[in-house]
């Protein structure tokens, strides 16, 4: 990948990778740091990374940086039962479905959330997601299936409250 292609990658994917990372981190600054670090790693290896692989390289690097960051700050927050969380903490009614989905998304286990984010935000195939997250294709499919079930259940619970 040439320097010019690297800069094209910045234009094309900086926002996307930032959104992806921002979904898992509460701090804007932390998300920016991780994205910057991922681009620095990409630049350092740009001669060895093909242009058509730059996007997945970038997302994968950012993802693993984020995982390291979360482990470092002990923010792993696996919530297995979204419906229980919803029942326990629904003092205010979520009318906006989009906001409800966003809230439900934050309650998903990180691996499910990242799979569905890469799938919906970036349109990656199961295979590509598996390569980036170091999962098998069938694992990715199962995680996405479970994530959508959980999200749907959460939406049903919201509708019931309404």
């Amino acid at each position: 990948m040439t320097p010019k292609e690297y800069n094209e990658t910045v234009d094309a994917w900086a926002d996307g990778v930032y959104r992806f990372i921002r979904k898992s981190l509460k701090s804007d600054d932390d998300a920016r740091d991780i994205v910057q670090n991922a681009f620095e790693i990409l630049w350092k290896n740009h001669e060895n990374v093909q242009f058509d692989k730059a996007k997945s390289y970038l997302f994968s690097t950012a993802y693993h940086n984020m995982i390291d960051h979360i482990r470092k700050h002990k923010r792993m927050d696996y919530v297995e039962e979204i419906d229980e969380a919803a029942k326990g903490g629904t003092a205010e009614v979520q009318v906006d479905v989009k906001e409800a989905i966003e809230k439900a998304l934050q309650k998903l286990p990180d691996v499910q959330k990242n799979c569905v984010l890469l799938r919906d935000y970036e349109g990656y195939s199961y295979e590509e997601i598996g390569e980036m997250l170091h999962l098998s294709e069938s694992q990715v499919k199962v995680y996405i299936f479970r994530a959508r079930q959980s999200l749907k259940e959460y939406l049903i619970s919201i509708h019931h409250l309404i």
């Binding site: 690297y6 926002d15 921002r22 910057q36 681009f39 630049w43 989009k98 919906d120 935000y121 994530a147």
Partner: peptide
Amino acid sequence: ETKLQPDTTVVFENKESLKKAV
């Protein structure tokens, strides 16, 4: 509705800082 839509208002500001001299 579980299909997530990216929030296009969230952007990485000052992308130029990430670019390198060509």
